[in-house]
């Protein structure tokens, strides 16, 4: 009975001090409304971070529609690059799901392989993104070259920062999970962040890249 309750609390061992602090009753009689605090905190972070991106993307969309002579720097080559980047990022979400499910199934070697795959795909995405940045910079579009440059580099830079942070976070979680110092619930929470980064990209591509080809 006690073991089952411990699993629900995030698969962490309950120490004697915790038992003394909360008593056995709190562990055995779980509230039907109880929410794992780690996961809940990540959801609150995701919602607050979504506001940041939402504000930037709304501003971009608004400026894009309201400005008749908006800069249109993207050509077919850029679209192919964006398609590749998007497929890489969605695939990384898939491998992250594999990592989360494998860790829950206590298959650590497979979870680690999926985590490394996610990191590799995230790094590939970042490299493709930076390559595209250099192409734009080479054509004279910079952070200070006009409204397009300012908004483009701000939004994609913020997203790229999230991707790089995510890769670092996955690396740290993977290392500690491999060493047995973190649990599958940590992998799951990191996965939530990674999927969020993927979802944000679903909005960045249409607004920033694809509206480039509108009439």
């Amino acid at each position: 009975m006690n073991e089952a309750v411990v699993m629900k609390k995030g698969e962490q061992a309950v120490s004697d001090s915790e038992l003394a602090m909360h008593g056995h009753g709190a562990l055995i009689e779980e509230s039907p409304y109880a929410i794992p605090s780690r996961k809940f905190t990540m959801w609150l972070f995701i919602i607050s971070d979504a506001v940041t991106f939402g504000a930037f993307l709304f501003a971009y969309g608004y400026l894009r529609v309201a400005t008749p002579n908006w800069t249109r720097p993207f050509e077919s080559g850029s679209v192919i690059n964006v398609i590749l980047m998007t497929i890489v990022l969605i695939t990384s979400s898939l491998t992250m799901l594999g990592a989360v499910d494998s860790s829950k199934a206590e298959d650590k070697p497979k979870a680690m392989r999926f985590l490394y795959s996610t990191m590799a795909l995230g790094a590939l995405f970042a490299l493709l993104h930076i390559r595209e940045w250099f192409e734009l910079l080479h054509r004279g579009i910079t952070l200070s070259s006009g409204l397009f440059g300012q908004t483009f580099f701000t939004i994609t830079g913020l997203h790229l920062l999230h991707v790089i942070s995510g890769v670092i976070a996955i690396f740290i979680v993977a290392s500690k999970y491999s060493a047995g110092r973190l649990t599958p619930s940590h992998v799951e929470t990191t996965g939530l962040y990674w999927h969020f980064v993927d979802l944000v990209w679903m909005f960045v591509v249409p607004l920033v890249y694809l509206t480039n080809f509108a009439r």
């Binding site: 529609v65 908006w70 398609i83 998007t86 679903m202 694809l210 509206t211 080809f213 509108a214 009439r215």
Partner: peptide, 30 residues
């Protein structure tokens, strides 16, 4: 399905919509 939705977005981007219409369509798909 996610990849298919994305490819539909790319297809729509080249269908000569006005900026406003395209933004609305793409946002709905997103």
């Amino acid at each position: 399905v996610l990849i298919a939705i994305f490819l539909v977005e790319v297809f729509l981007a080249f269908r000569n919509f006005s900026s406003g219409s395209l933004v609305v369509l793409l946002l709905l798909l997103a």
